[in-house]
Design a protein around this nucleic acid. Structure first.
Lengths: 149, 149
DNA sequence: CATATTTTTGAATATTATTCAACTATTTAT
DNA sequence: ATAAATAGTTGAATAATATTCAAAAATATG
């Protein structure tokens, strides 16, 4: 066939969605134009960044999930912002947070399975600046992106 | 005024959005009806769970973010699934993951500021079953819910 | 290979978002 | 305190988009 799905997934993952003004208006019991006005303002103020889909990751072949705690080197290669921004570009990475304390970076990763995760680790995490990695494997996700499963 | 915004935020946070079929069709260069058909199928298969907004959390007064690592007690109160599902109900919690190893639960929390976080900790995390908590405070979020900041 | 099922698609319709202009409330300046 | 300016609300009209439908094409099944 045409394999539309694999083309849609990455787009819906980050955007290509829009608020349902009519439904919101009905729910809040206010005129649709009022809802429209308020949402547009939030978009202009960039309080709203995007509208996107949330998936059942098991069903789209991203069943493996792990949280990585990273230690960075103290030299010029270990700048958390530089390393973090590089990591953020990878499509397997859901979130990147800069921290203080025992670890400098926390990243959440999704892959097809443990094999794919291992490949990801070797490909992405083996990098100058990252000196130590602790992997916390998620056995089950009870809530993801604010959505209860 | 009417404070529409505070009514919209919780709704857009978890849903009340929809895919933009026309834009997707244009992007992928396929007929809109084909896109429509494929998306409806993904919804039926529940590969897509919902469509939602992603916010700039600083701008909506949720500027504080932390990752909590939790140890649970070995008794009947410390069942990860029970504790996790309870935690998942709280609107401050973005994600809940059940893990194995040093910590049984990983949760990501957002609050207005550190004060609100402290209140949250006292209110929610002080609970039978949770025996130890490690807080990793996020100084900066480079990527959130797949969206680069 | 015939038949059933799934997927693709254009045309017609239904629904929804958006624009616009008027009005109301709130804020700002004098 | 009051006028003027600005921001927010709203209904009616329009524009854009999703959805339905029926037919055709592709794929799977017995």
């Amino acid at each position: 066939m045409k394999d539309i799905k694999s083309k849609l997934l990455p787009l819906l993952h980050i955007g290509y969605c829009t608020p349902q003004i009519a439904r919101l208006a009905q729910k809040i019991k206010e005129p649709a134009t009022t809802i429209h006005y308020n949402i547009k303002r939030m978009e202009e103020e960039q309080e709203i960044i995007t509208y996107k889909a949330v998936f059942d990751y098991k069903k789209i072949g991203e069943g493996f999930c792990a949280v990585l705690l990273l230690n960075l080197s103290a030299d010029e290669y270990g700048d958390p912002e530089t390393v973090g921004k590089d990591l953020a570009k990878h499509s397997e990475i859901e979130s990147v947070d800069i921290c203080t304390g025992d670890w400098e970076l926390i990243i959440k990763v999704r892959t097809k399975d443990q094999d794919a995760f291992y490949t990801f680790l070797r490909r992405v995490i083996t990098r100058r600046g990252i000196v130590r990695t602790k992997t916390l494997t998620s056995l089950k996700q009870l809530k993801t992106e604010w959505v209860e499963n």
